[in-house]
Computed example of a mutant assay.
Amino acid sequence: MREQRSSCCGTICTECEYYPNECAGCQAVQGKVFWLGFTGEDVCGIYDCCIHQKKLLHCGLCKALPCKRYELSEPTKSEAENQANLERQLFRLHNTPPLVWEEGEIRLEQAAELHRAAAEEMKQEFFQHGEATINGSALFDQLDFDEWLKRANRNHHPETVQTDWAVATTFFAVRKTDGKMLGMLDLRHSLDTPFLKEYGGHIGYAVRPTQRRKGYAVQMLQTALAGCARIGISPVVLGCYADNIASVRTIETCGGVLVEEKPYLDGKLMHCYSIRV
C-alpha cells in the first residue's frame, strides 16, 4: 500500500494521478508543482501564502479558510467534481489537523509529514555537532523520517501505542516569525511504564545547537506545561542529569520543585522535579 502524503491545502498528493512521476508532492517540491507551467506562477499561491507568508503548518490553522485561493477549479473536471474535491479538502483541514500549541515566540506543532525536510536538516545539525542523541525526539536520532513518523503516530493513540510505552505526542518547536525549526519535545500523557515512572517523566526536549542560549528551552517547556494544563496532566514530572546546568535552570525557571535525587541507569546522578500546572 502506498504511503499517504498530503499538502498544506488538504490535498492528498499520493492520490493524484501525476504522483510521483510528474510531481513528487507539494512538500517535496516546495510548492513548485508541475501545473505552474500552465498558470505562469513561480509557486502555488496557496502554498506560498500558508508556508511562506503566514508560516503555518497547514491551511486548517488559518482563520480565513476557505479564502479566494480555494475558488480556483481544475479545468479538466466538472463543477460537481471540483466542488466534491473542495469539500474533501476542507473536511481534512478542519477535522484532522495536527495539534498545535502556541505561547510567546514559538509554536509546538505535532510531528507531521509537512515537517520532513526541516526535521531532516535539523537532525543533521545535531549530528554535525557531535550529538548522537536527541532528547525528546522519540528515537528520531535512530530512525529515518518515514519509520519514525509512523511510530510517533502509533504511539499517539491508546489503541496502537507500544506495550512498553505510554501514549505520547511528539512536537517540533517552530519560531513564529520565520517558521524556523528550533527543536523537539516529546510529551508522555501518563507514566504507565516502570521506566517512565522511575526515570523518564512526562516531558523530554532538545533545542538544536545553533539556537541555544536564546531562551527557547524555557519557552518550549512553558508552552508544553500550558498544554498539560489544558489536557489535565498535573503534576508534571521531569528529570535531568544533575550536572546539566542548562536543563536544571530551565526546569526551575518553569516552576520545577526538586523532589528526588538518584542515580540514572548509567550511574550518573539525576534530579527529579515536579511542576503543578
Results as ranks from 00 to 15, higher is better:
residue 14 T to W: 01
residue 14 T to Y: 03
residue 15 E to K: 15
residue 18 Y to G: 01
residue 20 P to E: 12
residue 34 F to V: 15
residue 35 W to T: 13
residue 40 G to W: 04
residue 42 D to V: 11
residue 44 C to K: 10
residue 44 C to H: 07
residue 45 G to S: 13
residue 46 I to Q: 00
residue 47 Y to Q: 06
residue 47 Y to V: 13
residue 49 C to L: 12
residue 55 K to I: 01
residue 57 L to Y: 06
residue 59 C to Y: 11
residue 60 G to W: 10
residue 63 K to V: 14
residue 66 P to G: 08
residue 84 A to D: 07
residue 88 R to W: 00
residue 94 H to R: 15
residue 95 N to L: 12
residue 99 L to M: 10
residue 101 W to V: 11
residue 101 W to E: 13
residue 101 W to D: 11
residue 116 R to P: 07
residue 117 A to P: 01
residue 127 F to Q: 00
residue 127 F to T: 05
residue 128 Q to D: 14
residue 132 A to M: 08
residue 147 E to R: 13
residue 152 A to P: 02
residue 158 P to F: 13
residue 163 T to A: 10
residue 166 A to M: 09
residue 172 F to L: 09
residue 172 F to I: 02
residue 181 M to R: 14
residue 184 M to L: 15
residue 194 P to W: 03
residue 195 F to D: 11
residue 203 I to D: 03
residue 208 R to F: 01
residue 220 M to C: 06
residue 221 L to T: 10
residue 223 T to R: 07
residue 225 L to G: 03
residue 227 G to E: 06
residue 228 C to L: 06
residue 238 L to D: 01
residue 243 D to I: 08
residue 244 N to M: 02
residue 251 I to G: 12
residue 253 T to N: 06
residue 257 V to F: 05
residue 258 L to H: 00
residue 263 P to Q: 01
residue 270 M to V: 12
residue 272 C to T: 14
